[in-house]
Design a protein around this nucleic acid. Structure first.
Lengths: 178, 178
DNA sequence: ATTCTCCTATCTATCAGTAGGTAGATAGAT
DNA sequence: ATCTATCTACCTACTGATAGATAGGAGAAT
């Protein structure tokens, strides 16, 4: 196995906590307790908290884009529907925020490697969406605007829906997007 | 004076920290140190952290809506421009996130009174916008959708712009809104 | 086969730092 | 005298992190 089972479990537990309450919401002790090991053993897999945070953001980003697939693949309209659905699934299936949305909100207080991995997530989002919008015939400027707008609306819709405790608000907020 | 000068300074410092890194980013000790008093003295003005957090969200909300004014006042189009500008100012003048945007992202981990005050902010936003959209002739359902969409896009645009370290992305993301 | 060596993954025990919070004293103003 | 706002001094709980020990398995050398 490339990554040990324990390392994956650490990431799973940390991700859930981070997507609930941000970077300060997961701790080595709590993760360890949930797995049934000692906090020192968590440090064996991830030497520092920022290393764990960085791994978290990278894994989240990779999973996210593996779901979306190639922006040059399926029909643009289908890809955009898939994109909106991916955010909706994160909210409704997991019942959690987008990891990088939470990290993005507190980015100025994150350790540089974590902030950087978070930035990379949004950078990849912008690129992916711009490619899809280009295929729809939008000019580069318009494609960038449309991409930024979609990301913003989706991240914000998650916050709004969670803050109000009303998942239907997510759908209302993104109704016109795809 | 209704609120002592010290209490206002406490709120100012806490707000800045919270809008940078969330609820866990401000502490009684740091606030006290910045003012030049002891942390026990901060507890005199706000007995608990959740009381401070609640006061923070309420003051932020009140300031915000006092800037916006009466939704039945100026022309709807003008009000919407003002609404978008209020978010833009929070980002560009203060260089910070929307307080309730940050709190909203981590709402599931906030003490109930803070979560409640955060929810109230979004509730007020929805109501204010719905009134304005109603005046523009939108049906109730469409007005609610439009309101949710605007809030989402603006909160998300702040996150995106800050995460990417590029304030122009905010403008790009909200270009079509008002 | 047995022994030696190395690696993985965990443990115990501990550290310094910081968190929020409290009790009780005190100086100064009303 | 009382109230306001601060102080000193302390508590318990938790944070991330480290040092050093240990058990068990894998592979190589004898």
């Amino acid at each position: 196995m490339a990554k040990s089972d324990t390392a994956e479990r650490i990431l799973d537990i940390a991700e859930k906590a981070a997507r609930t309450g941000g970077y300060n919401a997961f701790s080595f002790r709590e993760i360890a307790a949930e797995i049934g090991i000692k906090s020192a053993s968590v440090h064996y897999h991830f030497p520092t908290k920022e290393a764990l945070g960085e791994a978290l953001a990278k894994r989240y980003s990779d999973h996210f884009f593996s779901v979306l697939g190639d922006p040059q693949g399926a029909e643009p309209a289908e890809l955009l529907k898939r994109y909106v659905a991916a955010y909706g699934a994160a909210l409704k299936q997991d019942g959690l925020m987008c990891l990088c949305g939470v990290f993005g909100a507190e980015i100025a207080d994150l350790p540089p490697p974590v902030a950087s991995a978070t930035r990379a997530f949004f950078e990849r989002n912008l690129e992916w969406l711009q490619q899809v919008h280009n295929r729809q015939g939008l000019a580069p400027d318009a494609a960038e605007q449309a991409a930024a707008h979609m990301i913003a609306a989706l991240e914000g819709a998650m916050i709004l829906a969670r803050a109000m405790g009303n998942a239907a608000l997510f759908d209302a907020a993104v109704a016109g997007l795809s």
